[in-house]
Write a protein that binds this DNA or RNA. Structure first.
Lengths: 82, 82
DNA sequence: TTTCATTTGTTCGTATGTATT
DNA sequence: CAATACATACGAACAAATGAA
């Protein structure tokens, strides 16, 4: 059970910030660190130190990847299964 | 560690200006003078004293050569590796 | 019922950067 | 060369859905 290293965004990396956030969240999910419900968008904003839109794009990406499902007004949840 | 000589475009050379700019940028990249993120297009316009389109063609060339990767809205980045 | 807190969803304005005309 | 469009990212505010008191 190794923990996921802290989020360390690289502004000079050829990768969008929201994608870096999504990758980090996915790593935490697969490490079992978060779930079945993800922290709220505002909590994630604080955790990652990024703006609302960036968190939304990150979770959009995870949803496109099929890792999470989100219910408006309820939350974003880790999708079970492989 | 020698620095790259200043940009000195030769109007009489049988080489397009944007190619001369690209070659100079590539030399600076390989000399480690710039990167991992290239200056913005407007900054490069000022540095080289050329028009926007010339800078764009130069970076297009670098991209075709596989030396840089560009992400719209984020920037143009030196590609790591050989 | 209404009220309240929480959470997702949307929009506006500003800044920076690339892309297009 | 200039102007415009598009995309990321930030900050702020507000709306809408949910659930519990």
């Amino acid at each position: 059970m190794s923990t996921v290293p802290p989020f360390n965004p690289d502004p000079d990396a050829p990768v969008y910030l929201y994608e870096q956030v999504a990758d980090h969240l996915q790593a935490r999910i697969e490490a079992g660190e978060i779930g079945p419900r993800l922290p709220g968008e505002r909590a994630l904003m604080d955790e990652y130190g990024v703006a609302h839109g960036t968190i939304r794009k990150a979770t959009d990406l995870l949803r496109e990847r099929g890792r999470v499902v989100t219910l408006p007004g309820k939350g974003t949840f880790v999708r079970k299964g492989e």
